[in-house]
Write a protein that binds this DNA or RNA. Sequence first.
DNA 1: ATGTTC
Length: 476
Amino acid sequence: MVELVKVDEDIWEVPQSYKPDMKVPGRIFLSDKLIKDLEDGSIEQVANVATLPGIQKYAMAMPDAHIGYGFPIGGVAAFDLDTGVISPGGVGFDINCGVRLLKSDLKVEDIRKDADNLIERLYHNVPSGLGSESKLRVSDTVLNEVFEKGARWAVENGYGVKADLEHCEENGEMKGANFAKVSKKAHERGRSQLGTLGSGNHFLEIQYVEKIYDEQVAKAFGLEEGKVTVMIHCGSRGAGHQICTDYIKVLEKASRKYGIKLYDRQLACAPLSSEEAKDYISAMAAAANYAWANRQVISHWVRETFNDYYKSEIKMDLLYDVAHNVAKFEEHDINGKRVKVCVHRKGATRAFAPGREEVPVAFRNVGQPVIIPGSMGSASYVLVGTQKAMETTFGSTCHGAGRVMSRHAAKKEVRGSEIKKELLEMGIIVKAPKDSAIAEEAPEVYKDIDDVIEVVHRLGISKKVARLVPIAVAKG
DNA sequence: ATGTTC
């Protein structure tokens, strides 16, 4: 196993000499404390990614990194448009898994007594769990619209307001999506799941702003200490999963066809200029749009639930919606030149600096809101994108706490009923379909979110704005 | 993450 070289505080390098075909070195952003939890396999995966054609600067891993399919989760890699590739493994199975944060005007002390009832209703109104089906049934024609318009489809059909769209990455609508590139099977899986949370670490959480770190940015984001927020963490469900599965096969063939040497079969990819890559990109965009529509529909039901419960219109503005599993075409400064590259972020969040045109006008002078969900029962964070991120990580940061124990191991090691009790003693209500779902997501199977955030803050690849603490959580 | 096995 390769020795990591510490090049600076919180920065570790996988030397380019480790594998003969590495085009660039690897960079892993980790504190001395967190490096103990880093699996050897993650380092190997970073090195493997560095062998792919056209990769720029470094193959990177954020402090929440762990082993994933081909690329590590927490991985960032940018590829040159002429010489580089795109890989479904660099995006992930849950295409455009992401997080959004709704801001209410309610105060934490006013809502405590209602939390039990509220989460019960939210749990009822937003279907969750493995294979969960929506109360919304869409026709083929409508589903195609969802694939191509994303959150805009939802807003145009009464699920939310126009302002919501301005507060999503890509306005909740990735261009270039083509439903014709989505298989029949993916269509079928998508039809019944629009407006569902899913399972695993996906959740819907009532929280409050416990602490503000940056008054000026918090003000620009409209965050106030003691105010209630709602966080929604989910993705593209079975549709995105099927699209990923379908295109891994296509790109495995393409890898052979174009003679790309793969250190790991899971790195299947195709040159960005190829037909296979273009098809995957069109389908990936469709999945991304499905995920945005999904989070938008869920947001609408959350608003409805609160309004109905309090018998009045509760302010529930969208702060922002981030995608942490997607590949995007962006301009970055590389070797003194501004070039367009394809940035893969898999379990990594865009953290764009002030001034970037991708950042909504309302936040353009402070930077992009970065929303980082904690594990169940732990804090979540709002951060802000920085120039340092642009220079160091192609404008990227971490996406969460990151696992330290597999789902399988967690189910054996941890008792869900115990966790539920412990959380309740801490004042956190958990609603889940079964106790084993709670065990898989227990706080102790994740790294400490505060440690992960400390690293990205100290590195400056995003800066702390606010810490959010859970009150009640509904999960799949 | 996922109708957890083409």
